[in-house]
Amino acid sequence: MSIDRNKGENMNIIVCMKQVPDTTDVKIDPKTGTLIREGVPSIVNPDDKHAIEESLRLKEKFGGTVTVVSMGPPQAIDALKEVYAMGVDDTILLSDRAFAGADTWATSYTLGMGIKALGEYDLIFCGLQAIDGDTAQIGPQLAEFLDIPQVTYVKKVNIEGNELTVVRALEDGHMTVKVPMPALLTAVKELNRPRYPTMGGIIKAYREHETKVWSASDIEAEPANIGLEGSPTQVKRTFAPEPRGKVEIIEGDSAAEMVSGLVDKLKEKNVVR
């Protein structure tokens, strides 16, 4: 696939978006140790908004389409409506009971099959990380499934001809990488400031736009590769992290002794290394 963008040819961009509970609002029930989700809204995964914003900017610059794909339960349609109201062209929901319980392997497989069913693309954008599962694994796994190059932790994107020039964050700096399209990028929040959905967009999203909902058979997914069956990992148990209990007053005969005790604790908690 060779596209000469200088001739003004269009880009097909696909963004993967996950609907997540707003974990910044989550509190832990001190009695049961589980999350209190009451009143916690479901939102578009924050990194994915940056992916969408960047895709919309590229579309505005080079022409083309932005299609958003999400795998999730039927309620995820709300999140797709919201991103539609930001200005994307089309939204697809991959929803099937058989997808439930997928780990990142099966999720990537499912998204990959959905993307294959969509046809040709130049660029796939994911968020770096979803705030619930928190693994940051989908981007690379999807790129591998589709056999295209990937750049993660992307904080800047440029396009020349058929090539992407991408700045990728590192712990202590950054790296500039050139990759040919089609490629997959994962967005971090430094990439841009996402736009808000517009009023007109919201109205169209509910009155006119229809999200396509595809099942496992629509995307010709292999039953053994999706949902729980397709997941090599299994969650054995979940539990609450130790809550902030009562304050521990570090005792000691001298200040030096107390300090030494404190440093032991901090080291144990891994906040000094």
Binding site: R195, Y196, T198, M199, G200, G201, I203
Partner: peptide, 30 residues
């Protein structure tokens, strides 16, 4: 400027005239 970008300055005006075409309840909510 930001409100304008979101279509909040002319919420109930029809799209034909650059508005958002919302209902009055949505306008009140905004």
């Amino acid at each position: 400027k930001k409100l304008a970008e979101m279509g909040i300055m002319g919420m109930m005006v029809s799209e034909e005239y650059g508005g958002s075409g919302s209902d009055a309840i949505s306008y009140a909510i905004a």
